[in-house]
């Protein structure tokens, strides 16, 4: 009895492993077996240089958003760069970086490219936009930046520290 259960489980797993690797091997959307996820959090140090850093592209062909250090974020804030807050409207209303625009990721991601461009039409595609969210474990800043970059915005910056860090540093906020 026990043996047949084990046999059934092994057969199910073998079929799945075989199917999974075979389909992934031939799939146009295949993913590598091992991927480096740490790069999602690497903060770009060249962004503060006066020289324009070389753009990196994703494999889908759009410009990769860059994570920036808080000092550089503050510098951009002082220069009047547009800040995009990806959190839901209620959280945005409870407090956000001064002058930030609320584009909730939850709704934004399901829009068509045309709709996305319509929402972002006030901003220059070649000028920086800073994407942030709540900070901490929040990843909306990253995802929102990628959505905007995919729509054709070439100077997306991600501020991982988010509202939490900004507020703790005593930088300008508003409600």
């Amino acid at each position: 009895m026990k043996r047949s259960l084990l046999k059934e489980i092994i057969i199910i797993i073998c079929i799945s492993v075989f199917l999974g690797f075979t389909v992934n091997f031939f799939s146009p959307n295949k993913i590598p077996l091992v991927q480096d996820y740490s790069s999602r959090y690497i903060v770009d140090s060249t962004s503060s240089d006066k020289q324009k850093p070389v753009r990196q592209y994703t494999k889908e062909g759009f410009v990769k958003p860059v994570n920036v250090k808080v000092q550089d974020v503050k510098k951009m804030f002082d220069e009047g760069v547009v800040f995009i807050d990806g959190r839901p409207p209620e959280e945005f209303a409870a407090g956000h970086i001064k002058g930030a625009v609320n584009i909730p990721y939850k709704e934004f991601k399901d829009k068509t490219t045309e709709q996305k461009l319509e929402i972002l039409k006030a901003y220059d595609k070649e000028k920086p936009l800073v994407s942030y969210c709540g900070g901490g474990d929040c990843e909306i800043s990253i995802d929102n930046a990628y959505e905007m970059a995919k729509a054709g915005y070439n100077e997306l910056k991600i501020y991982l520290g988010g509202y939490k860090e900004w507020e703790e540093l005593g930088y300008p906020t508003e409600k």
């Binding site: 199910i12 797993i13 079929i15 799945s16 492993v17 199917l19 999974g20 690797f21 389909v23 992934n24 993913i31 590598p32 077996l33 091992v34 991927q35």
Partner: peptide, 13 residues
């Protein structure tokens, strides 16, 4: 990624 490749197929099977 290995989990992401195999787990959905285990669910499917």
């Amino acid at each position: 990624n290995i989990f992401a490749i195999v787990i959905p197929y285990i669910e499917l099977t």
